[in-house]
């Protein structure tokens, strides 16, 4: 009996949140948006989909949530094949699209409650959930304001509240922080981290690579309808061959600085730029600078590390 319960628990948790196999999409004008992509997202993951504009990210999301008809391939959400029982698969999914897609004359409370109704939630529960998520996302005070009066950031948060009202196991966000100010972006990140920690699997497409690095554990990079990378973010970053650091120095740097084995450039009187190749240690830089009487007060990456990798992968595939 105990074994059977264990097996059931194990099997249930082994089911991927999303399985995509050989998915392709050819639009009516002949444009091949997806060329047979395959990927898997595990339960509880925070997964990033990256890619330049027109890479196929939104098409993939559109197919998962039924707004785009696939040309070939298989999609399963928590092992429910969308071709067999799309209604059951849809119950698992909450979607936050890139563009605002609610009636701007309606009030936020009505928008969220109506969405709950479309998932068959009784009125009392719908009201309760609407209150819970509008409060959690900081727009409860605006619940009876016509939604066109909300700021861009509030509209995005309204779409997140709407997507969560039926408490989906898989939340898909298509560039949720586009056009959102830094403070609001951070608060949105905190919220997404929280619901991910509570067990919601999250798939995110974003242009902000910093966002993917800060939030996600796994990543797929799509370019021209093909997946060019699909792994953990840590594994991806480990493959970086070269990183450039900016060092802020306490002492004034007079003239050129030489560090054996490293390429160094003086940016200004208190700033150096040092390239660290794979296998080298930054401690060696500090030691050599220390011997020259230069002490480093702080340091940072010159560019986002993931951004460098992304550019390399996308340009490499071009």
């Amino acid at each position: 009996m105990a074994r059977s319960v264990y097996e059931h628990f194990f099997q249930e948790h082994m089911i991927p949140a999303l399985t995509i196999e050989n998915l392709s999409k050819v639009y009516g004008n002949g444009f091949e948006a997806l060329k047979g992509i395959s990927l898997e997202v595990q339960q509880g993951d925070f997964f990033a989909m990256l890619g330049p504009n027109g890479a196929g990210k939104s098409t993939t999301i559109g197919i998962i949530c039924s707004l785009v008809a696939k040309s070939a391939g298989r999609v399963a959400v928590f092992d429910v094949d969308i071709d067999q029982d799309f209604a059951a698969a849809k119950k698992y999914i909450g979607i936050v699209p890139q563009e605002f897609n609610f009636n701007q004359f309606e009030q936020p409370m009505d928008i969220v409650i109506n969405q709950a109704g479309y998932y068959g939630l009784p009125a009392g529960l719908a009201r309760e959930r609407a209150e819970k998520y509008l409060k959690a996302l900081g727009i409860w005070d605006k619940r009876e304001v016509p939604s066109r009066m909300l700021s861009g950031g509030m509209k995005r948060r309204l779409m997140i509240a709407r997507a969560l009202v039926h408490e989906p196991k898989l939340l898909i966000l298509d560039e949720p922080t586009a056009g959102v100010d830094i403070e609001m972006r951070r608060s949105m990140w905190d919220f997404l981290k929280k619901i991910n920690a509570q067990g919601t699997t999250i798939i995110l497409t974003t242009h902000y690579l910093e966002e993917a690095e800060a939030l996600c554990r796994h990543i797929a990079i799509i370019n021209r309808g093909e997946i060019v990378e699909h792994c953990s973010i840590k594994a991806l970053l480990r493959r970086l061959q070269r990183e450039v650091f900016i060092l802020d120095c306490v002492e004034e740097v007079a003239g050129p600085v030489a560090i054996s084995g490293f390429h160094v450039q003086v940016v200004d009187a208190h700033t150096l730029e040092v390239a660290i190749e794979k296998g080298q240690y930054i401690n060696q830089v500090f030691e050599q600078l220390g011997r020259q009487g230069i002490h480093v007060s702080s340091m940072r990456n010159k560019a986002n590390r993931l951004e460098e990798m992304f550019v390399n992968l996308v340009e490499g595939a071009a």
């Binding site: 949530c65 039924s66 707004l67 799309f86 209604a87 059951a88 849809k90 119950k91 999914i93 979607i95 699209p97 563009e99 605002f100 897609n101 609610f102 009636n103 701007q104 928008i111 109506n114 969405q115 479309y118 998932y119 068959g120 709407r162």
Partner: peptide, 18 residues
């Protein structure tokens, strides 16, 4: 048509409503 125009018809299309 209004819901098509402002894309709010997607609220229904992504839901399991038959």
């Amino acid at each position: 048509f209004g819901s098509k125009f402002n894309n709010s018809v997607e609220e229904l299309l992504v839901s399991p409503t038959p």
